[in-house]
Design a protein around this nucleic acid. Structure first.
Lengths: 348, 348
DNA sequence: CACGCCTTTGTGAGCGCTAACAATCTAGCT
DNA sequence: AGCTAGATTGTTAGCGCTCACAAAGGCGTG
């Protein structure tokens, strides 16, 4: 009433203090849950806050506390099922820890793009970054970048000294391969992902290890780029081999490095007149929602994206708050999902 | 040298000013590209910034300018192809406009979840929000929420007075239906999405309109929940009808409201011994990456997510910066992608 | 050569909040 | 009652930046 000038600006802590008849510090104490405030005072303040529709100004708060409580996420190709799911997992975990998540998506991902993304996030004062960097070159670039805050990688491997969380890709590949051998196949072919990807390498390594442990000579590796088309091409080649029955290893089982390529492989086999799983068993990796409805339903490996998100945020927050210092690398266990595409002939 | 105490804190503008032998204001001017700074001075400052590795403190800046240059995105079910792609489009567009994007994903999406998400974003001082709210109940909740900043909806329909951007779902559905009629089908069946979804409604409306315009009585609508399983169930029913050839409308063409359900429909038809497209043509909606490799490759409708992202951010920024006031609603044109699943028999 | 005008640079205040400290009040003890 | 420890509240000083204004320098013109 004493003030003739009317302000359109949102109310400040001082306004609330005046309204409640206390000092601004008391308001601050109520807001941050300080124990030493009389219940009656707390109540008055709460009422005043409510009445004025007051909201704490995060910029002022961040300025004095030097904490923005914001995390950055850098992801390549966020439209793919894996990265998209991971992003969701990350965001939920961060929200629970009281952080806001800001995402930057890179279309492809040269080192320059990564540097720009880090700069963009740094300019807004993020306290740490989770980088979903499945390609070796990304991790390399990231390690050389020397960001001004902690960085945790997801699917970034553990060669370099960056903390990170990954699915145990190799274990997943082992599970699939062992499952196929157990179903009676003498050998297992493999359609790998593109070269630069750590996931490709780990999946191939797991497959190869199991074969070698069983004294089986791994056949030549076919390579795709994760797309259904590339899987289709590989599938055509496999179909040719399956029909020819030349000296080469007979094609009776194929472990494809992801579900989308597996879809292409299935189509090529079908077009080549080869029945799945009766003549050739096929397994994928990822368990995309469509996999269960592929012709036939696809045996694959499921990743627990929520767990990956939770653990990366946990790791990042530990670093930010100084609880962790060493560069840990956590592995999340995959789960084998068995479906019709690898069912042994005698069960079909 | 005069200061014995060494500070681990990042350099401030004052530090840069000292280093460059100018006032902090001049540093500020260089940073914000003010024209009235001598080239030589600018150079000194730039060098000092470089040498000290200085970064402007965004919190301090936001405090005084009252601009956080941060936008929020609220999305339900971000792991799905559509929302994930939209998110990417939004983020890229926002970055170009000089904003940071913070995303909150809701698992399901009651009104309470929405309110919490808005609160969470408001607490960090976002200047506006893009809400990907494909369900009618969301938009309703959003309209009643009365957020303290502009809100733009994506796929939120245009009944309520919220500005928004949508794909022209109805047009997409019309394109598909007309395409099927043009291919010689006497009628087109429809597997719709779940009831509360605006996309379902618009797609159904477009389909129905085309049939009625052509004097065709629309057959009973089957309903799914977007999942392959629900499509499979609907497909089983359609297969039954296609075989039975009872009095009902013959099943020769089906427009399925999304690609995932179409996958289920295709499988059910195949299992029912019905060939696609020879006996029954099937079309979907979304053009997910897998659609081209479905058995058979799926005719579908492609959405330009990048355009949707760009236009929603444009609209939001217009509102934030006071350039737009009325509640516009923009429509983005879809594109019909014709593939083998609807190829007329005589061309097969 | 003095005046005014534009360019360039500097000074001071204050954005809204928290942290540190100071002041006051209460209750428990001797 | 007198004293002290603890609880409760208030006061002050910045955090690092931008804005408004003031001061100083440069230059053309009458």
């Amino acid at each position: 009433m004493a003030h003739p000038a009317e302000d359109v600006r949102p109310p400040t802590m001082a306004d609330v203090a005046r309204e409640a008849g206390v000092s601004h510090q008391t308001v601050s104490r109520v807001l941050s849950g300080h124990p030493n405030v009389r219940a009656a005072t707390r109540e008055q303040v709460t009422v005043a806050i409510e009445r004025l529709g007051y909201r704490r100004n995060s910029a002022a708060r961040a300025l004095v506390t030097r904490r923005t409580r914001t995390l950055g996420v850098i992801a390549v190709n966020t439209a793919l099922y894996g990265p998209a799911s991971t992003l969701t997992g990350l965001e939920e975990a961060a929200r629970e820890e009281g952080y806001l998540v800001s995402a930057v998506s890179l279309r492809s991902g040269g080192g320059q793009g990564l540097r720009d993304a880090i700069d963009h996030l740094a300019a807004w004062g993020v306290e740490g970054v989770v980088a979903i960097t499945p390609q070796r070159s990304h991790v390399q670039a990231l390690a050389e970048l020397d960001a001004p805050f902690p960085v945790v990688t997801v699917e970034g491997g553990h060669q370099l000294d960056l903390p990170g969380v990954s699915l145990d890709q190799e274990l997943g590949a082992r599970m699939v391969t062992e499952h196929l051998l157990a179903a009676g196949h003498a050998n297992v072919w493999h359609v790998a992902g593109p070269g630069d990807w750590l996931e490709s390498e780990a999946r191939t390594a797991g497959w190869r290890a199991v074969l070698e442990e069983n004294g089986i000579r791994p056949p030549r590796v076919l390579t795709g780029d994760w797309s259904p088309l590339s899987g289709y091409r590989a599938g055509q080649e496999l179909a040719g081999l399956a029909m020819a029955r030349r000296g080469a290893t007979p094609v009776t089982a194929v472990f494809v490095a992801n579900d989308q390529m597996a879809l292409g492989v299935l189509r090529a086999l079908r077009e080549g007149g080869i029945r799945t799983p009766a003549q050739v068993a096929v397994a994928g990796f990822d368990d995309i929602p469509e996999a269960e409805y592929f012709p036939p339903p696809l045996t694959t490996v499921r990743q627990d994206f929520a767990a990956i998100g939770r653990r990366s945020i946990g790791l990042l927050v530990d670093h930010i708050e100084g609880r962790a210092t060493k560069t840990e690398h956590l592995l999340v266990e995959p789960q084998l999902i068995m479906r019709a595409s690898t069912r042994p002939p005698h069960e079909a």
